[in-house]
C-alpha cells in the first residue's frame, strides 16, 4: 500500500495533552481515510499537520512523496482541498466566486464548466451561483464548501467534521455524493469525524484516535477486531455494520 501521507516519529503538541503526542502511520493513496475519535482527541490537529497549519515539535510529515517544506507551504496547500468545520465560505463573495477562489489564488482563468460540473454533482441549483452564502441553507452551504475544496482538482482533500451540523438525511446525501466524486476524481481524502457510522460509511481505511494515541487502524474489519476497549465500545453502540466489507 503506497502512502500519500505518512507520519514518521511525529511529535506534536495538542491542546488537551500535556505531553506531546507521537505518531507513526501512513495513509493510503486515492482512498478515503476516516479518522474517528471523541472530541478533543487531537483529530483536527492531525489534519492540520497535513497542510502545515500545525507544525510538529519533531519528526517528519511526508505529503505527496516528500517531506513538508515549511518555507513553501503555499505551494503545498494549493494542492490540498480543505473543508473546515462550521465555516468555509467567504461572506463577501458569491457562491461561484467562492467555489473558484483557488483559480484566483493560482492566477488561473476561472472555468465555468468546472463550477457547473461540481455544482451539478453536489446537487446545487445553478441559480445559486450569483448568490451570497447567507442566502443558502446550511446543507447548501456545506455542498458549496465541498465544491470549493474540489474545484482545483486537488491531490488531497481534508474534511474536518464537515457534516457535523447537518440533519441526517442531508448528511447521508452529501456522504454519497462525496463517495461518488472520490471514485471519479481519485483524490486521496482524509475525513475527520466523531461519528463512527460516518467513518464506516465513507472510510476505506480507518484510524481510531483517542487522547492523541492511535487505538487502531486499518480496514473496517481490521479495526473491528482490534482489542482496544474504546473500539469495542464504539462498535457496540453502532447500529449499522461496516459497509465497505462487500466493496473491498
Amino acid at each position: 500500500m503506497s502512502s500519500v501521507i505518512s507520519f514518521e516519529n511525529v511529535v506534536f503538541q495538542h491542546r488537551t495533552q500535556e505531553n506531546p503526542l507521537h505518531l507513526n502511520i501512513g495513509l493510503p493513496s486515492a482512498k478515503i481515510t476516516a479518522i474517528v475519535g471523541p472530541s478533543g482527541s487531537g483529530k483536527s490537529s492531525l489534519l492540520q499537520l497535513i497542510n502545515g497549519l500545525l507544525r510538529p515539535v519533531s519528526g517528519i510529515v511526508h505529503v505527496l512523496g516528500s517531506p513538508i517544506d515549511y518555507t513553501r507551504l503555499e505551494q503545498l496547500r494549493r494542492r490540498i482541498g480543505y473543508v473546515v468545520q462550521s465555516a468555509g465560505l467567504f461572506p463577501h463573495l458569491t457562491i461561484a466566486q467562492n467555489i473558484s477562489l483557488s483559480a484566483h489564488i493560482k492566477g488561473e482563468a476561472v472555468s465555468e464548466d468546472r463550477i457547473d460540473e461540481l455544482m451539478t454533482k453536489m446537487t446545487l441549483s445553478g441559480q445559486f451561483k450569483q448568490r451570497h452564502p447567507y442566502q443558502l441553507s446550511g446543507g447548501e452551504q456545506q455542498r458549496a464548501v465541498i465544491c470549493m475544496a474540489l474545484y482545483g482538482r486537488p491531490d488531497i482533500v481534508l474534511l474536518d467534521e464537515s457534516m457535523g451540523s447537518l440533519d441526517s438525511i442531508t448528511r447521508v446525501e452529501i456522504q454519497d455524493q462525496l463517495m461518488t466524486l472520490q471514485s471519479e476524481e481519485k483524490y486521496s481524502a482524509v475525513l475527520v469525524t466523531h461519528d463512527l457510522q460516518e467513518a464506516l460509511r465513507l472510510g476505506d481505511y480507518l484510524i481510531v484516535i483517542n487522547r492523541g494515541n492511535i487505538e487502531a487502524h486499518g480496514t473496517a474489519q481490521e479495526v473491528q477486531s482490534s482489542p482496544s476497549e474504546l473500539v469495542q465500545k464504539l462498535f457496540e453502540h453502532s447500529t449499522i455494520g461496516p459497509r465497505k466489507f462487500s466493496r473491498s
Partner: peptide
Amino acid sequence: IDPALKKVADGLGMSPYQKLKFVEFPL
C-alpha cells in the same frame, strides 16, 4: 475577522498579499 475564515484562507494556500486582497480587506 472569523479565525475560521483566516484558517480557510491559509488552507487554500493564499499568500499574505492574497489574504489581504481576497479576505481581510473586504471583511
